[in-house]
Design a protein around this nucleic acid. Structure first.
Ligand SMILES: [Zn+2]
Ligand SMILES: [Zn+2]
Ligand SMILES: [Zn+2]
Ligand SMILES: [Zn+2]
Lengths: 151, 151
DNA sequence: AATCTTGCTGATATATCATATCATTGCTGT
DNA sequence: ACAGCAATGATATGATATATCAGCAAGATT
């Protein structure tokens, strides 16, 4: 990722937080940056290690969890519940509003692609769920895939 | 669940294991039965506790994990990776072959419904994934829902 | 500026989920 | 009975996540 692009994203993230009243502190920004620069999702403890090595600090995992909670609330990062890892949102600098994301997770290289599936498919899925007597409240999908490079 | 129905399922489970060469031992059967009788998914440790209380034994969680691995391989139970819990398959006694399951998980009462979505939707989803340059390898979905009772 | 309030972080403990490894037991076919 | 293999026991450790209370720092109120 280019320096310029990263800065653009971080600036936009700052805007988002300002708008919501949250504070993108130095530590929170540092964690977000680190996640943006990673090409695979990271566990909270991996994030902790990376952060501490990169800054010669010693933040406890507890703090990282709290920061991840915050960033998740701001939709700047997402949690992948199938792998218990966390990934920076791919659409921070986009102007469109954030839809419910779907994730394509490569089983070989662990890379993740965040997409938004066609509304038609989401609707059909919701209908299917309704047929089963349930009401869909969150259609975040985590799909086990193989990426182009690895296939 | 009626006694008779339970026995039918356990007999079918026995058949499935015989056919695959696996052994449905007393302990494995006990774990499966316990899971069939639960109306919510259980964690490995919850299963361990329930089993030990119900039989006055003291199986270690390690053994339960191994047994769950076995039962999963035989497709008699499924793991819900979004909650780290395990649930008995709803289609053990069915004659049809086991498709890739999808799970509707109620966020209030934790009840789970195992369904198989229309092939058309699965195909469309796969196409969507292909458009993104990925190849879908497993379309097990875990959908956050509200069930009829809770809504 | 001093104080207040709120939200952020530190620090520690503990709960929860999962795997590694080696020893022991018990079927199963010869 | 014996050998071989599958299942279980036993113990240790690793990985993920939450609870709780104390200290601190930034923005708001006086
Ligand atoms: Zn996103
Ligand atoms: Zn890949
Ligand atoms: Zn099933
Ligand atoms: Zn419910």
């Amino acid at each position: 990722m280019k320096e310029q692009q990263l800065n653009k994203i971080l600036t936009k993230a700052q805007d988002i937080c300002n708008h919501s009243g949250g504070r993108l502190t130095t530590k929170r920004k540092g964690i977000l940056e680190l996640m943006l620069l990673s090409n695979v999702p990271l566990s909270a403890y991996e994030i902790t290690d990376k952060y501490n090595k990169s800054t010669d600090s010693s933040m406890a995992a507890m703090s990282v969890y709290r920061i991840l909670d915050f960033l998740e609330t701001e939709q700047l990062v997402h949690k992948l519940s199938s792998t218990n890892k966390y990934v920076a949102c791919s659409h921070i600098a986009c102007s469109h509003s954030h839809e419910i994301p779907q994730f394509l997770i490569c089983g070989k290289c662990q890379s993740v692609k965040e997409i938004a599936i066609a509304k038609r498919i989401a609707d059909e899925l919701e209908q299917e769920v309704a047929n089963a007597g349930y009401k869909l409240v969150n259609s975040q999908l985590e799909l086990q895939c193989i990426c182009e490079k690895c296939s």
